[in-house]
Design a protein around this nucleic acid. Structure first.
Length: 402
DNA sequence: AAAGACCTCAACCGCTTTCAG
DNA sequence: ACTGAAAGCGGTTGAGGTCTT
């Protein structure tokens, strides 16, 4: 048998916390410590669910919480971590002492995501889908003169009802891809490139770095592909048992460093685009032609060396026990975008696609060693500058900013 | 000054993971 | 090994505030 129910939902207060409630909760936790959220409300004399108490404590009452606005440095860290980790707010928050996942999530949704969006749009005007988005109202200026979340929300709602949004989070594009299974759409759930992540968080993150084939959702088969920018350390590798791999993806002969990822239907994207986001897109490994079986052949030994019509070359070399060799440098930084294949809407998924971006992250933020070079730093600087500036240029509609 | 559009963020909801029984 | 509650997490909501017209 399990435990007794956490709390009775009936008769419990909801909504905003009063100062009195805060005081009760804070005093109780100071006296008794955290934990035992189930019994806490009763013992503290609160008509709240334990879950609500926990949330209130974590997000608001904790003494070590940092108050005030997110600094520019924190902002940069959030952007960079988000590029690597996606919407793993608690993980991102762990790198920002005094900030909560909820706070970061809110900040991202209200500030940063718009900048990213506008940056991507401005960097890729030739992308029809984004242009369409703009037409649909993302960029329309309301009566109040400020464009932004309302339009985005409106647009989002029109495409992703609540349930669908949740579904797309857990098993992205499940529904939408059912009609496109013949095209071997494979969904990337998460890209991780976090050499500094602690063991436990890394393992959980690895679990999210999977290739999901919606065509085979019935058997829920998940395969792992985990490129690593740090072959020498073995961090950020494939598998849960220390297996190592490097997925080598290069576009043309240009060699950069970073991580690699994939996207379905990459062929839709024009090749003559420019800007860092596009570089991420066009360097996307296309699994239309590289099956998960091939990539993760448990027998190993196979080598991919395939050139696409658009010039994308996919290579992997020197596998060990069916995974890719750690001995090779990852050539290209790959972010990804994914299309749901039906509405044509593009999802940024967890990552914006920025070439060399992750190198910058860990080099500057974590102090890690990163192979690569000055070119990337220049590019990254440009990108970041563009992000910050775009807030004014794009959303201010003439420099008004936020 | 008023109205409406838009923004912010605390809190809720529901799902997944963890772990106690 | 199994069950189910607790804990944790991410997505969403909505009240209240701000800004523009």
């Amino acid at each position: 048998m399990g435990r007794a129910p956490c709390c009775e939902k009936v008769g419990l207060k909801k909504g905003r916390w009063t100062a009195e409630e805060d005081e009760k909760l804070a005093k109780y936790i100071q006296a008794n410590g955290e934990g035992s959220w189930r019994s806490m409300p009763k013992n503290a004399g609160l008509l709240r669910c334990g879950k609500s108490c926990r949330l209130r404590w974590i997000n608001y009452l904790r003494a070590d919480l940092k108050r005030g606005n997110i600094s520019t440095e924190e902002e940069e860290i959030i952007v960079q971590l988000h590029a690597s980790l996606g919407n793993r707010w608690s993980l991102i928050a762990s790198y920002l002492p005094g900030r909560t996942d909820n706070e970061i999530k809110n900040y991202w949704n209200s500030h940063l995501s718009r900048r990213i969006h506008s940056f991507r749009r401005s960097a890729s005007e030739s992308l029809p889908l984004i242009t369409e988005t703009a037409k649909e109202g993302v960029l329309t200026k309301g009566k109040g003169g400020r464009a932004g979340r309302f339009a985005v929300k409106k647009n989002k709602n029109s495409h992703t009802p609540k349930d669908a949004t949740r579904a797309s989070t857990k098993k992205p594009l499940m529904e939408n891809n059912t009609s496109n299974c013949h095209n071997s759409n494979i969904e990337v759930m998460q890209l991780l490139q976090t050499p500094a992540i602690e063991k436990e968080t890394l393992s959980s993150a690895i679990n999210d770095t999977v290739i999901w084939d919606p065509c085979e959702d019935d058997k829920e088969q998940m395969d792992l592909v985990m490129p690593s920018p740090y072959p020498e350390t073995g961090r950020g590798m494939v598998g849960s048992s220390g297996e190592k791999a490097t997925l080598v993806v290069s576009h043309s002969d240009e060699i950069t460093s970073g991580n690699s990822m994939l996207c379905p239907s990459v062929g839709e994207i024009e090749n003559d685009s420019s800007g860092p986001f596009y570089q991420g897109i066009e360097n996307t490994l296309c699994f239309d032609e590289v099956t998960d079986k091939e990539l993760l052949d448990p027998n190993g030994g196979s080598t991919l060396n395939e050139e696409r019509q658009d010039g994308l070359v996919v290579r992997s070399e020197e596998r060990e026990n069916g995974v890719l060799s750690p001995n090779k440098t990852v050539y290209d930084s790959i972010g990804y975008l994914s299309s749901n294949g039906e509405s044509g809407e593009w999802h940024s998924c967890s990552s914006i696609s920025i070439s060399g971006f992750d190198d910058w992250i860990w080099d500057d933020v974590m102090g890690g060693h990163v192979e690569g070079g000055g070119d990337h730093l220049i590019q990254e600087d440009n990108m970041l500058s563009c992000l910050w500036e775009s807030d004014q240029v794009e959303w201010g509609g003439g420099g008004t900013g936020l």
